[in-house]
Design a protein around this nucleic acid. Structure first.
Lengths: 359, 359
DNA sequence: CTGTTTTTCTGAAACGTTTCATTTTTCCGT
DNA sequence: ACGGAAAAATGAAACGTTTCAGAAAAACAG
């Protein structure tokens, strides 16, 4: 491929001038500028990002580190990030950690040798990101953390309003008449799982409903976890009439367990999920869920990162995205109260606006 | 970050020696080698991939170009590719084309400036990949094409055995007694959609079933397409008793249309999908589908690419992966033949082994 | 016109590697 | 112990940019 030297010769100018034209790094008089541009055009010249990165000590690549692209919530996040990154001239390097913090560490270290402009990270379990990000920041590389935060995270972050979403979802169950509530939370060392449980608890507390500890289960964020814990919950006496699941995968497992137990959702038991994955509307019954926009998570993170790259040095931003409640067929009034066919109409309730908390 | 010069000084050797130790590019006596390794260890040195790529005229990045990571079939492909790429020291750069060939072209061009070691591409609609790949290959960059092939593709490829999968799925419907078959194919300019239709037709022909052209519909690979075309099919007289959908998204739309028409699947009409997405087992009824491994598609492509990078110059390989039939609740015998509760047991039938066709 | 200031342009150094032609060291046979 | 061959180590050039100090050109004031 052509290089700058050839362009310089072709345009009859010096190397430096070509560079200045290409980067607007100095005034160049119009006729000369045009000659350069013409030569670039003619040769189909593209600057080498490698040489550029080497010289500038920074490339236009953004490392995206996440647990597993195969998890149905994450692709939208990646897509969001890629869209704004690409349109600003940045490329995404994808890394899967499988929620293993040592694998995360490996990625974090190896990415250094590419001098990425920034990092977008969905931290793994027990992530040590806080320390690592410090060392990245020292060399001027931004790191923004999304979806969930590692211990002591002080940097930029974008998350959903998990507490609020869970609170309103639970409140809705209570409003329908449920008093025997249960929840299956995700791993509580993850901030998002913890916040959702907190929201659930707040709604329960405010409604002055008493709940034995056995009605609050913790498990992994997957179908199997939901299945096993639901089997436990279904054996409790009295049996819960509504389950709030920490995410849709858990809810899916719960649905399976409910069906296997010969029970019927929502007649015998209501079910609420979190994330509002695509599959929520195709299950049987369709799954009510707290909706959060993965895409927006991604775009927002990329936006912040690019701002930082371009010199924004304001204090750490903590963007919290609104959620909305998506009611479908999996929730209804509890058996004792049920009045005829009690499937509430599909509807969506908006939550508070996204809030950016500077400092 | 430390560079080679510092390591050289630290170890008391020359720059070249450090490089030779790191790359095994020349014999270095053991004591010296040890001193270098120790210095590397001590300084936590990592070679700059930028400098390395610049000098070698090739990086260890692999460009992965696909329509949309948000399409539920693709994340597994990416994951497969990333797994074998990463474990061989390569990184994945992700690009979405939205099935737009001009966007694909942009990506193809911009990726050049990173000197990627190779490209894995799921071509967009009307892709001009064949031409582009030629110019990449000229500079020693491998390109492997997966899932579907652009016009005149002669290079390495990995695809599923679409024809065979569709053939056996259709055969199964026929075996159950269906004679009024219909299919909703994907966009027929895509090779995979075309092959699936071919398989369908072959099974129909072999069974000596006659099918009017109105029983064969073409649409986009999405829910909406399936929904609309199913509405058409349901109005035909006689109404088809089984629909083979070009993929699971189309099947999903079909399911919706069937339900809305007041019909019941599989009692009134059987439905078969393709891809066997995760959601196939959570729909109501669960969806029978031709299963193909996206993950394997990804790993195989990456494997081939890395072989090429390491100097494999054998003729183009065309790997065709087996599919398997995943029967669930959405298929049963047609109404006229039905004998009691006719839900066939869940089972999986293996198809022929993966075949590599060297040239 | 001339000297000064301002603007534009140039050329070389530097970024951190790999690689190749040389030099230095080691090894071996006599 | 010596000379020559083989092996090991070295140093500089090159990859394609950006950037900086300085040269050249233009603009301006008197």
């Amino acid at each position: 491929m052509a290089n700058m030297k050839e362009i310089a010769k072709l345009a009859g100018v010096s190397l430096g001038t070509v560079s200045h034209v290409l980067n607007n790094s100095a005034r160049v008089r119009e006729p000369m500028r045009q000659r350069v541009l013409a030569a670039v055009q003619q040769a189909g010249y593209q600057p080498s990002e490698l040489a550029r990165g080497l010289r500038r000590d920074k490339t236009n690549m953004i490392g995206m580190i996440m647990p597993d692209i195969t998890n149905p919530f994450f692709p939208a996040v990646v897509r969001g990030a890629e869209d704004v990154a690409f349109s600003n001239g940045y490329r995404l390097i994808l890394c899967n950690t499988d929620n293993d913090h040592s694998k995360e560490l490996v990625h974090l270290n190896e990415l250094r040798s590419y001098l990425p402009a920034g990092l977008i990270v969905i931290p793994s379990n027990f992530s040590d990101l806080t320390t690592q990000a410090e060392s990245y920041r020292k060399v001027g590389t931004g790191v923004v953390c999304i979806d969930r935060l590692p211990r002591n995270w002080k940097g930029d972050s974008v998350t959903a309003d998990n507490e609020d979403g869970a609170y309103h979802a639970t409140q809705q169950l209570i409003r329908l008449g449920h008093t025997r509530l249960a929840t299956i939370a995700g791993p509580l060392h993850l901030t998002n799982a913890k916040e959702r449980l907190d929201g659930f608890k707040r709604a329960v507390r405010e409604a002055r409903v008493h709940l034995g500890p056995e009605y609050i289960q913790e498990t992994t964020f997957d179908k199997q976890g939901g299945y096993l814990k639901t089997n436990l919950l279904l054996r409790l006496i009295p049996r819960p009439t509504a389950i709030f699941a920490g995410n849709d995968m858990i809810a899916l497992g719960a649905l399976l367990a409910i069906r296997e137990a010969g029970l019927h959702c929502p007649r015998d038991i209501s079910l609420m999920g979190f994330d509002d994955l695509d599959l929520a509307e195709t299950t049987n019954p369709s799954l009510s869920s707290v909706s959060q926009s993965g895409y927006q998570l991604g775009t927002t993170a990329a936006r912040i990162l690019i701002d930082r790259i371009q010199g924004d040095t304001s204090p750490a931003r903590h963007v919290v995205l609104e959620t909305s409640l998506h009611l479908r067929d999996s929730v209804a009034s509890p058996p004792e109260i049920a009045t005829g066919p009690s499937t509430p109409a599909k509807r969506t309730r908006r939550r508070k606006q996204a809030a950016a908390t500077p400092a």
